[in-house]
Design a protein around this nucleic acid. Structure first.
Lengths: 146, 146
DNA sequence: ATTCTCTCGTTACAACTGCAACTAACTCGC
DNA sequence: GCGAGTTAGTTGCAGTTGTAACGAGAGAAT
């Protein structure tokens, strides 16, 4: 089937537009309410999940490069939300973890994140959400496999 | 159902990661092969579809803001791929259209775009592609409705 | 006709992002 | 245990992007 190219029906375009719309919405909410960028928000979330981690681990978990991690971590340390401790096993590295302030902020952030997600997907059935998740993961794998 | 927040299962995160992976792949391909950024590529594609349009129209069609349009258009005019003509109906505006060089480039670009898309979605059924398209459009609408 | 307001598009400046170079520290081979 | 090569993380610089102000033109009211 010889398809013609139209931007509107080009799936990578649709993906990008949807992602930008959603990211814009979320990043706006977090910037306004907490003064956090998405990178910082992701770090906080992962640290809440894992208790403590090196920047390299955080990079794996958040799919962000080491520069982004480094800068986000600096900003959070500056604000007293994250603490850095020496890594006894490797002097180049260090462990990052949430301070009590960081944990308190997370306790505010998490419900808001879930509520925003719920609102966005209000008209989606559970099955549709599951499908979308699965399609996105497969697509990601396909894109990275090249 | 009181869900717990985990980044890995947070759909906006999945969307962002998938979109970045796909965008990275595509923008790389176009930058290397044609020296085009995604914004420029989108403009060319829309101009090929619509023949001629004002920057404002292009902004609507590509979901890009006017600054991005302005810069992409300048770059394309610079390269002789796009021409600007006066808009008799409005002296502030102008019409943009592809030059013959621009059309020639589009003729190379379009098949490559379709091929890349086909490769990305090689393991997706037609029905799955349709589903993804539909889910993304609904999500976009939901994100913009707030 | 003149003024007031609004819109189109560009420009100027600031913030952000990413690459490449750097420092410090680890590993391995000898 | 010492030097070559690697790796972790940071920093400096350059290119990119976004925000906010701007000039020019259009439209509407008087």
């Amino acid at each position: 089937m010889k398809r013609k190219l139209t931007l509107d029906q080009f799936l990578p375009y649709r993906l990008s537009v949807a992602s930008n719309a959603v990211s814009g919405l979320i990043s706006n909410a977090y910037r306004k309410r907490f003064g956090l960028k998405i990178a910082e928000w992701r770090l906080i979330t992962i640290l809440a999940e894992t208790e403590r981690a090196t920047p390299a681990k955080l990079g794996d978990a958040t799919r962000m490069d080491k520069i982004a991690i480094s800068r986000a971590a600096s900003a959070l340390i500056e604000r007293g939300l994250v603490a850095a401790d020496d890594n006894p096993a490797d002097g180049r590295s260090h462990f990052l973890s949430l301070t009590s302030d960081g944990k308190a902020l997370y306790a505010e952030i998490a419900p808001l994140a879930l509520a925003t997600e719920a609102e966005l997907f209000a008209k989606f059935s559970a099955e549709e959400c599951r499908q979308l998740d699965s399609l996105l993961r497969r697509l990601e794998a396909a894109a990275e496999g090249r």
